[in-house]
Amino acid sequence: MAELALRSGRVSAPGLCSGRVSAPGLCSGRARSAEVKMSLRQIKGKVWKFGDNVNTDEIIPAKYLNVSDDKELAKHCMTGISESRRGDDKQFGKKISKGDVIVAGENFGCGSSREHAPLAIKAAGISCVIASSFARIFFRNSINIGLPILECKNAARIHSGDIVKIDLANGIIDNLTQKKIHRTSPFPSFMQEIVNAGGLMKKIKKGTGYFLKDKKSSLSPF
């Protein structure tokens, strides 16, 4: 799902709104939705819930870092999280369905800089990670590889097993199970352009410059 949504250079940008498009995922209210060139793919999936300070050793233990193939990494995604920290999601990894969503508390992805962590999550089929806050390097890595992420202060209100529909264009998380809607915050346009390009390296290859004019945002944590 995420891949589909990301596919279009102009539109997609799951997790990161396109200024040109319509704020996929990070909901820029100011985005010019009239410029949308195609219908935006929406994410809908079952929630796997985790707590605060989920670290990268939990997401992908270092013993699996002797390879860098994402499909291989995906086999071990979240295997470093102990049972006591898994909440109701002891079967994570075994029963995950493509398109499922991870919801977590504060400081998701803290610890090491290993890009293997978001790569493993993405390759495992997770379509989006929603957290109250993200650790800085995990945040950057996710954007750079095109894993949709959303910072949502109300993440704690979403429960394990809930079905959520995420409108990346407008930054809306619709909890279908609870019948509640949460809104997320806009990201700066240069980040949207990275995701729109299909990742940082593709943006550089396109020769559109390394990055852009946005000078200020109080909402994007780096």
């Binding site: 800089s113 290993r114 890009e115 978001p118 390097i137 950057r140 890595n141 750079n144 590889i145 240069f190 990742g199 940082l200 390296m201 550089i204 390394y210 990055f211 945002s217 994007s220 944590p221 780096f222």
Partner: peptide
């Protein structure tokens, strides 16, 4: 610290985007 793709971008451009903390 950054991730691998950020490092690849530095290999290519010698530059990095940062938010002033």
């Amino acid at each position: 610290g950054v991730g691998s793709t950020d490092l690849a971008a530095v290999f290519a451009t010698g530059k990095i985007w940062l938010k002033v903390p």
